[in-house]
Design a protein around this nucleic acid. Structure first.
Length: 648
DNA sequence: GCCGGTTACCTTTTT
DNA sequence: GGTAACCGGC
């Protein structure tokens, strides 16, 4: 075999994985062991050998990860690598299902609904079936939706999920199942697929139509899956079907970093991979290239205390380094001040802000820190937590566009109509039924088919949809037309409309990059932007230099010179919700492990000693149980006072 | 049936 | 501190 160009830059197990060819391969890759490096080198090696890029399928956890890997492979070799097939399981499912939509019972195509749309639909059904009685505590739409999703992702009946995981609702199991059935029916009726349906329908398509399975699976010579520890049973099944023709599958992951059980992932799944593909070869990457020894010693210690032992031990050659520190501060403000001051100090020592990250369990945990950073003039990028596209004003604007392409989108029509003066739920329903009966879509709004009483209220909306009749509108034009219509509504409904207007203008900037409005709408659902910057007006070259604030989930796979993990306070991390349940608690431990293994040189854990949670009406004062028993020589302890009421 | 004003009730994590 | 469910006036 011809030697691969960059073979010499790999260590032995990495090289073995890169050069592996026929059959199935499981790579257990510890944190910082060069997992991404191995994948990108393998992509480049395959392309170099003449494997057509399109016949390489690279499935990743986020689109960002996929584009980044493709970019790095292209850097190694050349831009043939750009043509590699890749994306998330969901985006891959979407593109396949669009092609075969008649086979899955959606001859007219489908629209993908995000979580909050799905919840709204469930809420509609919940109301219609009149289950929300006063005396009766029936699960909220959100809870119902999470029950349904868990059932799908764990491949279990809803009834079983309710009885095992939501025991306090087990008396309502019949009605919950009824809502579930109705939800499925409505989705078919309106041409909706939710996130879970994308996976389920793809699996069904590949199972029920052998000739389609054959065509698709033979088109992929090599399949690679990243972050395999966070896939669930349906995804494993899809993978088995996709690989049925060539059987060349490589999956990479780390069971100690499995943090998505709420999506049906199970850290044991990765060890089941050899059952899915007999004769699987296993390679372990155990050399950590990221962290200095003191950090690695600590992270090994954290994961060693897991209830279930993991199968590897990481080592590093970077011996010297600073010990990790656990800092306890008087209160929340002092926590923020400690972080800000430390960052300032780092920058004075020449550290680039982009090499620094602050990580936390949940998006809102950084609110106070954000205030403090703004006050001191630090700009930052925040990743995770808050979802731009789920805010009301963004959803409003998108709804007006969605119905152009999906006339049966009941949820969007209700949303649009509810914004019109003197139209409420009843009239919206009536208008929708009239449009839907003849499948008229937005063109129906232009016609004179409504009672005279509605003519006046519908006048401006009619004007909007008349403007969409013009030919040759760019995606940006459409956004601008919709925004012009929406601005008066925005001003009347939100006191903080200037801020929201900026968001909408930001949305128009995103729209400018698209040529196909359908693609834009799909991306907003499947791969929505989850980054916000402290100051969105700044140019993007500056944003590359910024400090990062991120949820731990969104920090997966990344690394920084210095990492702060804030709120390592028992009750917050592990979260109070996890303390009762042993599996959940173990996942919190892995989550902390993921956070800590992001650091190369400096690692700080911070918590306020004195914190009263107003909502929970509880005082928390102890450090995270995962850190409290670690000896001082592995984890240095610092004790700081309260902030007082220092303000400028 | 619509709408504006009130209160309660949260807030993991993401495709 | 933001929104979703609830209530009473029009």
């Amino acid at each position: 075999m011809k030697k691969f160009l960059f073979e010499d830059s790999l260590n032995d197990p990495q090289r073995e994985a890169v050069l592996f060819r026929e059959g199935s391969l499981l790579v257990i890759a510890g944190a910082g062991s060069g997992k991404t490096r191995t994948l990108t080198h393998r992509v480049a090696a395959l392309v170099q050998e003449g494997v057509p890029p399109r016949s390489i399928l690279l499935l990743t956890f986020t689109r960002k990860a996929s584009t980044e890997m493709v970019r790095r492979a292209s850097e190694l070799l050349d831009d043939r690598c750009e043509k590699v097939s890749g994306g998330t399981f969901h985006s891959f499912a979407n593109s396949v299902l669009r092609k075969y939509s008649t086979y899955i019972g959606f001859p007219g195509g489908f629209a993908i609904i995000d979580e909050s749309d799905a919840e709204d639909l469930v809420g509609l059904i919940r109301k219609e079936l009149d289950l929300a009685g006063k005396e009766r505590s029936f699960p909220a739409k959100k809870t119902l939706m999470s029950m349904f999703s868990r059932a799908v992702n764990k491949v279990l009946p809803v009834e079983e999920i309710v009885c095992n995981e939501y025991t306090h609702f087990s008396s309502e199991v019949q009605d919950i199942a009824a809502v579930h059935r109705e939800y499925a029916k409505r989705k078919t009726l309106h041409g909706f697929l939710d996130y879970d349906d994308l996976l389920v329908k793809l699996r069904n398509l590949l199972t029920e139509y052998p000739e389609i399975r054959e065509r698709i699976s033979s088109s992929f010579q090599y399949i690679m899956v990243d972050e395999y520890q966070d896939t669930n049973k349906i995804q494993a099944e899809i993978l088995r079907l996709l690989a049925s023709a060539n059987r060349n599958v490589m999956v990479v992951g780390d069971d100690a970093q499995s943090i998505y059980s709420f999506r049906g992932a199970n850290f044991r799944n990765i060890m089941d991979f050899p059952n899915l593909f007999p004769d699987t070869k296993m390679i372990r990457l155990e050399e950590n290239f990221r962290s200095v020894q003191p950090i690695l010693t600590l992270t090994n210690n954290i994961i060693d205390q897991a209830a279930e032992k993991f199968t590897k031990k990481l080592f590093t050659k970077k011996l010297a380094g600073n010990p990790p520190v656990l800092v306890s501060t008087g209160d929340e403000k002092a926590q923020s001040l400690f972080v800000v001051n430390k960052i300032n100090e780092l920058m004075l020592n020449g550290i680039n802000p982009r090499d620094v990250a602050v990580l936390f369990r949940a998006g809102f945990h950084s609110f106070d820190l954000e205030l403090e950073l703004n006050r001191k003039g630090f700009s930052f990028n925040k990743v995770g937590g808050f979802k731009f596209v789920e805010s009301a004003h963004i959803k409003d604007l998108l709804a007006h566009l969605k119905v152009l392409f999906h006339p049966r989108d009941r949820l969007s029509w209700y949303r649009i109509l509810a914004l019109v003066d003197s139209i409420g739920p009843k009239k919206a329903q009536m208008i929708f039924e009239t449009l839907d009966k003849e499948n008229l879509g937005y063109k129906g709004i232009l016609k004179d088919i409504f009672p005279a009483k509605l003519a006046k209220p519908l006048e401006t909306l009619r004007g909007l949809y008349a403007s969409f009749e013009k030919d040759k509108l760019s995606v940006f034009d459409m956004g601008e037309i919709a925004l012009n219509y929406y601005m008066p509504i925005l001003k009347s409904r939100f006191d903080d409309w200037p801020k929201r207007q900026k968001d909408l203008e930001q949305l128009l900037v995103i729209m400018e990059r698209y040529e196909d409005p359908r693609e834009f709408l799909t991306d907003m659902t499947l791969e929505p932007p989850n980054t916000s910057s402290g100051n969105s007006m700044e140019i993007s070259s500056e944003s590359a230099r910024r400090l990062t604030l991120s949820t731990i989930h969104s920090a997966k796979g990344l690394e920084w010179h210095t990492v702060f993990v804030i709120w390592v306070l028992d009750g917050r991390f592990p979260s109070i919700h996890a303390i009762e349940n042993e599996d959940a608690l173990e996942e919190e431990r892995r989550l902390l492990y993921v956070a800590a293994t992001r650091a190369r040189e400096n690692l700080f854990f911070v918590y306020p000693r004195n914190f009263y949670d107003r909502n929970l009406r509880m005082i928390f004062s102890n450090p995270s149980r995962f850190l409290s028993d670690i000896p001082d020589d592995l984890l240095e302890k610092q004790f700081l006072g309260s902030s007082g009421f220092r303000r400028f």
